[in-house]
């Protein structure tokens, strides 16, 4: 059928279910006449209406995921590492991070086996420093001089250039 729906035809003129047209509808990717037809179908089809709610929920959950902060110093270390470009640097991954990573892995493994340390409080952690700075600047700016307390957060956080 060429109605734009991929839900399949139940035969003999019965309306097809919308299937992935539901996602297209939510994303505004249906051309207006097709969208109209889809909405008309939804008005009379509880199955598709229910599926719409479910898929809309998943869509909203992913859309509301926050930005992820890279590990503290990630890009700064990369800059340092790449400051002396060599053929090896072009071909290999960051040796600095790898070495530290492998060494830490070894140390951690040794610590776990020898000393039985495995608690979450011993897990290496990267504080999300830029976010913490922003949290500080916003809370400090409440009831205080906005310019002094808040304007510095307009500069993206980076250290040690």
């Amino acid at each position: 059928m060429t109605n734009g729906f991929t839900g399949g035809d139940r035969g003999f003129g019965a309306p097809a279910h919308l299937g992935d047209a539901l996602s297209a509808l939510l994303d505004g990717e249906l051309p207006p006449p097709v969208e109209q037809g889809a909405r008309a179908h939804l008005a009379g089809c509880p199955a598709c209406a229910g599926e719409l709610v479910a898929v809309d929920q998943a869509r909203r959950w992913v859309r509301s995921l926050p930005l992820v902060e890279p590990p503290f110093g990630f890009y700064e270390r990369m800059l340092l590492d790449r400051a002396q470009p060599t053929a090896a640097a072009f071909g290999a991954r960051s040796t600095l991070r790898r070495r530290a990573g492998l060494a830490a892995l070894g140390a951690a493994a040794a610590a776990v086996t020898v000393l039985g340390v495995g608690s979450p409080s011993q897990a290496p952690v990267n504080p999300a420093v830029p976010r913490l700075i922003e949290a500080h600047a916003t809370s400090a700016s409440v009831g205080a001089d906005l310019l002094s307390k808040l304007a510095p957060a307009g500069v993206p956080v980076s250290f040690g250039r």
Binding site: G73, R77, S121, P124, V125, P127, S139, A144, F159, G160
Partner: peptide, 26 residues
């Protein structure tokens, strides 16, 4: 969040430990 009336100081705390390899070098 702390304040002395003029300046503000935030202390953030989370579980875990820091390694030198994980902080910016400078």
């Amino acid at each position: 969040l702390y304040s002395d009336g003029m300046y503000d100081l935030s202390v953030f705390e989370q579980q875990g430990r820091l390694r030198q390899a994980d902080v910016p070098p400078a």
